[in-house]
Amino acid sequence: MGLSIRHLCYTYEEGFSIRDICLDALNGRVLGIIGPNGSGKSTLIQCVVGLLRPQSGLIRIEDRDSASMTRREVAQRIGYVPQNHPPAFPFRVLDIVLMGRTPYLGMLQTPSRCDEALAEERLAELGIRHLADRPYTHISGGERRLALIARALAQQADILVLDEPTAYLDFRNRHRVTQTISDLASQGAAVVMSLHDPAEALECCHDAILLSEGAIAAAGPSCEAVTEENLSRAYGVPITRVDAPRFLVKPDGR
């Protein structure tokens, strides 16, 4: 079950490529993908959710080869949270979340009352029910991220793929997002997310993969993969681990 990738390769026309990526995302665990800018984190994520078609390699989603699945089937199994971007039109937040129901609708169907109730429930779970009728283009970056997570949850998928879900968030929102992610994993979801800050992989991931120039530089349980030595090699600068002053939301604080 979960997600498993073997020897995945994707090459852009301009020449950059990710090569020979293997990973397993298991139910109940959170897998973090870290690496320098331009190391292929987003490319890998876009291959997983089907935005890019890998030239070679195998992606197995819940023990089925994704190449033999339709987009709809994939979308019923993988919920996707893209990096922030405002859409061209001022949709209501509720409409955005409703779009997560699309994989369960026929081509000519529109969402039902049931779908709407489900979408509202997802918003309530993330504590942003009050945003339902606000235009998505007029809410803050953190609220948008939460709305996109609500959309992914509306897909009712067992696998969640998130592209830098914590980037640019303030304390409160960052805490809400990471808390939601670990709750989902403990309920049995398989979570894959790319992270900007390697420290976060230690904090909120069971496993980690370190990418460097399109290839895996280190992989394993996060405490083993995210080490001074591995990071120094991947980022090309000497890196040391310090216990610098940091502020965190208390574990039980919402």
Partner: peptide
């Protein structure tokens, strides 16, 4: 008119693919 919901989803751009839309064909 029949495709009105899909038109909403397609306005999300390529991301619509991850929402189960047969993007190119539609």
């Amino acid at each position: 008119y029949a495709f009105r919901w899909r038109l909403s989803v397609l306005s999300m751009g390529t991301e619509a693919k991850a929402l189960g839309v047969a993007y190119e064909r539609e």
